[in-house]
């Protein structure tokens, strides 16, 4: 199957998944105790009868349930995620101002954990009983057992309070002055601690996986072939072996996106990172359901997109998949 047809199929399947996410949202609002109109309005107090009537009209709440679903789906399809009554803004717009920060954090954490994890895994694989291997084993237990929000707080206490190297919170300095380059540096400076916090959970997993995968690949026949050709050892490891060993890492990286977004939620809250996580936190405390539901939909959409992108990356990295055209 060629790549275009493959992308088309994956996109279609992604849309089907998103359809069910929206339906699930719809069902949840109806399952929640109380009048759906009041649920949608949120428990903010001071809702007037006109507002409730307005909501009933917009969502067609007096119509049959099927019609209500159709109306809801229609709104979502147009990109209308509803109105946040607490923030007094369209939910789509609210999320739009926050999504960039979350993507930045998630990608930075993913990048850091894969890079360091793979490097650790490669060195561990060269000596399966060596120091790095032991470190990888210890790290993977730690990475599993550390509550991510607590790690973040500990890092703040150590690296922002006791040793004031990094800022305590936020994404940019309060009174920032300077050019765009300095601005980028300022954001990166703020990004270090949150990204590291989030990366710690996943780093160990990637290191463990990379180690196992590298050990297996280094024993493969084609590695012997490379050595028999006279390929220098460094090139054997980093060119011939690594290209094959990253394939399972890529698969896992794709599956991790949902967990990354969950982790980002907590990390953002700890560091006051102005992304979707803090927005979700704020709106849940205010019972601002349209915003919460919108974030759930967009979060799911991010996972779907990330999965499609990793599948595409996998097709690029593994020529065998490309011609067979099958899914993993």
């Amino acid at each position: 199957m060629n790549t275009a047809a493959y992308i088309a199929r994956r996109l279609f399947y992604g849309l089907v998944l998103m359809f069910f996410v929206v339906v699930l949202n719809f069902v949840l609002i109806r399952l929640a105790p109380g009048d759906p109109a009041e649920v949608i309005a949120g428990e903010m107090g001071g809702i007037t009868q006109e507002m409730l009537a307005d909501i009933r009209a917009t969502y067609g709440l007096d119509k049959p349930i099927a019609t209500q679903l159709a109306i809801y789906l229609g709104q979502i399809a147009r990109g209308d995620l509803g109105m946040s009554f607490f923030f007094d803004q369209p939910v789509a717009k609210l999320i739009g101002t926050r999504i960039g920060a979350t993507i930045l954090l998630v990608l930075a954490a993913q990048l850091v954990s894969i890079l360091i994890g793979v490097v650790m895994g490669v060195f561990a694989a060269r000596k399966p009983n060596g120091v790095v291997s032991a470190l990888v084993a210890v790290f993977s237990t730690l990475g599993y057992a550390l509550p991510v929000f607590w790690t973040g707080i500990m890092l703040i206490i150590v690296f922002a309070s006791w040793l004031p190297i990094f800022p305590v919170e936020g994404m940019r300095s309060a009174r920032f002055e300077g050019g765009s380059f300095a601005y980028v540096l300022d954001v990166l400076h703020h990004l270090v601690l949150p990204a590291v916090t989030l990366a710690i959970i996943f780093l160990a997993q990637y290191a463990r996986l990379a180690r196992a995968s590298m050990i297996e690949v280094l024993g493969a026949d084609y590695i012997r072939t490379a050595r028999a050709k006279g390929v220098p050892e460094r090139r054997v490891v980093f060119h011939h072996a690594l290209r094959n060993a990253v394939l399972p890492i890529l698969t896992v990286a794709g599956l991790q996106f949902g967990n990354l977004i969950s982790g980002a939620l907590l990390v953002e809250t700890v560091f006051n990172w102005p992304g979707m996580g803090t927005l979700a936190f704020d709106s849940i405390l205010r019972r601002d359901y349209p915003t919460v539901m919108g974030i759930l939909i967009i979060g799911a959409a991010m996972v779907v997109v990330a999965n499609i992108l990793t599948d595409l990356g996998y097709r690029l990295a593994d020529p065998r998949i490309r011609t067979e055209g099958g899914r993993r």
């Binding site: 084609y222 028999a228 065998r320």
Partner: peptide, 28 residues
């Protein structure tokens, strides 16, 4: 020295293995 052996491998001594199915790197 390994450096010298590397020169000889592939240049002065070539080798063919038993398993053609797995002896070539699948991603190149």
């Amino acid at each position: 020295p390994e450096r010298r052996l590397r020169q000889l491998r592939g240049r002065d001594i070539g080798m063919i293995f038993q398993e053609p199915m797995t002896s070539l790197n699948p991603v190149f």
